[in-house]
């Protein structure tokens, strides 16, 4: 039926979005890529002169590469924590809850926080972890400590907990979808052949759910790598993620070429992570190849 539409009609439908994306998405990306290859003068003005200076700086100056590494490690930590936290819940809903309506209800409960404002969810941990917060109050009343702990809030720990909290739904959603797709008969077949719950879990459910787990973990990894708010809101003076560096370079430090370069490096890393994860998702997907 394609013939029913003239080329002009197609252009009419498609062109506004194409133009928009070029003007407001593609060109900005091209622009910072170009900017990352320039340098700035003493006043922070961008000097049009092509050089790889910024990139060299990133990979030779400890502040940059060490922060990059730390962010990567933190991201992995967050991703793994999210997986560990989501797995029991998703497994429970997918395999242990019998009634369909209860499944839907529980799944909705997982998805719901996904829609609640980032800032609100981050803020909740300030109340819980604060100097006079619930955790300290609780520890004081139980007599486990005598002075409120100040180091809980404003630390790497607080940042990680907050990110894990915020990103858990991102991990749980694809994970649940994957687990739910595993035919129940496979689980029964495993039991039929003499496998107990643990063997079934590790030999059947985990391998078959792997694509969903990978895709969830990738979400958490990528979103942590790009996060700069949690470290500001909950992190300590030394909690600095690579994105905070970008933010500073575009703000107080005012070195836009260097900031752009760091941004491009983050981008490249994320694209790499996404590619690797897509590769493994495909490799471990047992159902689609049939």
């Amino acid at each position: 039926m394609t013939t029913a539409y003239s080329n002009r009609a197609k252009a009419f439908l498609l062109l506004p979005m194409v133009v928009w994306l070029i003007a407001f998405l593609l060109l900005p990306y091209v622009f910072i890529f170009a900017q990352s290859l320039m340098k700035s003068d003493a006043f922070g003005n961008v000097v049009v002169e092509f050089t790889a200076e910024s990139y060299i700086k990133i990979f030779t100056s400890k502040l940059y590469y060490a922060t990059l590494l730390k962010t990567l490690m933190m991201s992995c930590l967050v991703a793994v924590s999210c997986v560990i936290i989501s797995l029991p819940l998703c497994y429970f809903i997918a395999f242990k809850v019998q009634s369909e309506s209860r499944k839907t209800m529980l799944y909705t409960l997982i998805v719901l926080p996904f829609w609640v404002s980032y800032i609100v969810r981050a803020y909740s941990w300030k109340i819980i972890l604060g100097q006079f917060g619930i955790l300290n109050g609780f520890l004081l009343t139980t007599g486990l400590i005598t002075e409120p702990l100040e180091i809980i809030l404003y630390s790497d720990f607080a940042t990680i907990i907050c990110l894990v909290y915020i990103l858990t739904p991102f991990v749980a959603i694809p994970m649940y979808t994957a687990l739910e797709q595993i035919p129940k008969s496979l689980v029964e077949a495993a039991k039929d052949l003499g496998a107990g719950s643990l063997t079934t879990f590790f030999r059947i459910i985990i391998p078959l759910g792997l694509p969903g787990i990978i895709s969830g973990a990738t979400f958490a990894l990528v979103l942590t790598m790009g996060d700069f708010l949690a470290p500001i809101l909950l992190g300590g003076p030394n909690t600095l993620f690579i994105s905070n560096i970008v933010q500073n370079l575009f703000g107080t430090s005012n070195d836009k070429p260097l900031g752009s370069a760091v941004g491009i490096v983050i981008l490249a890393l994320i694209v790499l992570v996404l590619e690797v994860s897509t590769y493994f998702e495909k490799k471990y997907s047992s159902f689609k190849s049939s």
Binding site: L186, E188, A190, D192, S290
Partner: peptide
Amino acid sequence: VNTVFQNYALFPN
């Protein structure tokens, strides 16, 4: 006792 399942239930992995 072992079962041959309705749709075989062979482990795809």
